[in-house]
Simulated assay, not measured.
Amino acid sequence: MNTAIIIGAGPAGLMAAEELAKAGVSVTVCEAKPSVGRKFLMAGKSGLNITKDEAPEQFLAAFTEASPHLAPMIAAFGPNEIKLWAAELGQELFTGSTGRVFPKAMKASPLLRAWLGRLDALGVTFNTRWRWTGWSDGGLRFDTPEGVQTLGADVTIFALGGASWKRLGSDGVWAEAFQAKNVPVTPFSAANAGIKIDWSSFMEKHFGFALKGIALSSGPFTSRGEAVISRQGIEGGGVYSVSRGVRDGHQLVVDLAPDQTLENIGKKLSKPQGKATLTNHMRKVLKLDPAKIALLQEMAKPLPKDPKQLAKLIKAVPVQHSGLRPMDEAISTAGGVAWSGVDETLMLQSMPATYVVGEMLDWEAPTGGYLITACLATGAWAGRHAAAKIG
C-alpha cells in the first residue's frame, strides 16, 4: 500500500489526510502538540466562521495578490463544497446576515470530533507529541516521547502553519530548514492584527468598551464593523480588515458616523448648544456614545469649534498609533513558502513528492471565513494531487 505522512494536524493537514485516505493511501499524521486542531478549536471559541457565502469573484478577491494561485483550489473546494462537507459530518449550518457561515452549535469541537471519527474510520494514524526537526538520511526526523524517530513515505505533506500563536503550534521555525533545501520563503509578517496605541491616562476608563458602527480605512483597505478599545490599543474584526494597510505604512482613519453625511453632521452641530458642553452637544445631536467621543478627543484635542471643521474630523479621525501588535498575537500571518517554490499541485519544485499547504504558503486574507476556507482548499488540492501522483 502507498504511504503518506502529514506533518501538522490543523485544518489543512487534516483535509489532506482525508483526501489521501479516501484514495486508499495509508496515512500517518504527525503533530507536535499533545492534541490535534488546537488553532481550529481556538478559532471556534467565539463561533466557528467556517466559510462565507458570497459571489465567487468577490470571495476570491479577498486573497489579493494570491488570488490567481488559489483560484483553482477554491473553485474545486470552496464555500459550497465546505458546506456540503460539514453537513456530511452531521453539522447543521446557518448563514448570517453578512454571508458568514457558522455551525448551529457555533463551536468547533463537535465538527472536529466528527471529522476525527471519519479519519479514524478511514484508517488514519495519529502520532501526537511528534515534533518534526528536519530531514535525515532521506527520511523525516522527529523528536518524540520515545526519543528521536525517523520516518519515510511515498509522499509527504507539510501543514505546519504560519508564525502566530506559537502556543497553539504555529511558530514558523520550519522556514530555516526549508530555505536550507533551496525552498524560497517570504519573510513572515502579522496579518489580521490589533493596532498598538499608546493611550493617555484619559482613556483608561474606556478600556473594554466597543466602538460600534464605525468605518475604518488605511490605504486601499476599508471596513465597516466595530473595534474594542483595550489597554494595548484597538482590536476586533473591523480593525483586522485594515491592518494590512497599517502594516504597509498607510494612515489609519476612523469614520465615527458612517451612516451620516458630512453636510448632515455639520447641520446638526450648528444647532444651538446652549449651556451644554461640546461633549454633551455631540452626544445629543449626533448620538455619539462616550467611547467614540473619547477616541475623538484623544486623537484630536482641542476640538475645533467650527461645526464644519468638527464634522470633517468626526468623519475622518486620524488615529495616531505605533503599528501592529506583535506577530505572535496576530490571527494569521503573511509570508511563507513563495509561489515560485511550488508547482500547480503545491508540490515543492526542489523536493519531489513533498507538498506544502495552508498558512505555510505565502497568502493572506481577512477574517470572515476566508482563512479556514483557503486552508481546507489547499489541503484538499494537495491531498488529491499527491494521491494521484503515487496512485
Rank of each mutant, 00 (worst) to 15 (best):
His385Gln: 06
Trp132Thr: 06
Asn192Gln: 11
Lys308Ser: 12
Trp339Tyr: 00
Glu65Cys: 07
Lys292Asp: 02
Val29His: 06
Glu204Ile: 00
Gly162Gln: 03
Leu256Cys: 09
Lys312Asp: 07
Val148Phe: 11
Pro110Asn: 09
Ile331Lys: 13
Thr333Ser: 11
Thr345Tyr: 10
Asp53Leu: 00
Arg129Glu: 15
Gly162Asp: 06
Thr277Lys: 04
Val239Asn: 10
Trp174Asn: 01
Val101Gly: 03
Val342Thr: 13
Phe59Met: 02
Phe202Arg: 14
Pro302Tyr: 00
Val29Glu: 02
Phe63Val: 04
Ile195Thr: 08
Gln297Glu: 08
Gln260Arg: 15
Glu65His: 14
Asp143Phe: 05
Ala180Arg: 11
Ile50Lys: 01
Glu88Lys: 05
Ala87Met: 01
Gly341Gln: 02
Pro110Gln: 09
Lys181Asp: 00
Val148Asn: 00
Lys315Ser: 01
Pro326Glu: 04
Glu263His: 14
Lys104Thr: 11
Pro79Met: 03
Val342Cys: 00
His206Cys: 11
Trp130Leu: 00
Leu286His: 15
Glu88Ser: 05
Val183His: 02
Met73Ile: 04
Asn127Gly: 00
Val228Pro: 06
Gln149Pro: 13
Ile5Lys: 01
Pro304Trp: 14
Ala257Ser: 08
Gly368Met: 05
Thr345Gln: 05
Ile234Thr: 07
Ala159Thr: 02
Leu296Thr: 00
Met42Gln: 15
Glu263Ile: 13
Phe178Asp: 05
Thr222Gly: 09
Gln273Ile: 00
Leu111Gly: 04
Pro302Lys: 05
Ala153Thr: 05
His321Gln: 01
Thr156Ser: 12
Lys22Cys: 00
Glu329Pro: 11
Leu252Ile: 09
Phe188Leu: 10
His385Ile: 15
Ser109Met: 11
Met73Ala: 06
Val101Tyr: 03
Leu324Thr: 10
Asp143Leu: 13
Ile197Asn: 01
Ala190Leu: 06
Ile214Gln: 08
Gly99Tyr: 03
Lys45Asn: 09
Lys271Thr: 04
Leu89Met: 03
Leu296Phe: 01
Gln58Met: 13
Pro72Leu: 01
Glu19Asp: 05
Ser223Asn: 08
Gly47Trp: 06
Leu286Lys: 12
Thr367Leu: 06
Trp363Phe: 07
His321Ala: 02
Lys205Glu: 07
Leu119Tyr: 10
His69Ser: 13
Trp199Gly: 02
Ile157Arg: 01
Gly383Trp: 10
Gly335Asn: 07
Lys39Val: 02
Ala12Asp: 08
Leu93Met: 13
Pro220Lys: 14
Lys107Met: 09
Thr128Trp: 12
Pro103Trp: 03
Val25Lys: 04
Lys389Val: 00
Ile74Trp: 05
Lys196Phe: 12
Asp120Asn: 15
Ala382His: 04
Gly323Phe: 15
Lys181Tyr: 07
Asp248Thr: 09
Ala163Thr: 15
Gly172Phe: 08
Glu81Asn: 09
Ala17Asn: 03
Leu296Pro: 01
Asn2Gln: 14
Val357Tyr: 02
Phe94Arg: 08
Lys301Gly: 03
Gly213Val: 08
Phe63Ser: 04
Val253Gly: 00
Val285Asn: 12
Val148Tyr: 15
Ile234Phe: 07
Lys312Gly: 14
Ser322Ala: 15
Gly134Arg: 06
Arg224His: 12
Ser201Cys: 04
Ser67Trp: 04
Ile331Tyr: 14
Pro326Leu: 07
Ala76Thr: 11
Lys284Pro: 11
Pro318Met: 12
Lys166Cys: 15
Ala55Ser: 14
Ser164Pro: 02
Lys389Glu: 14
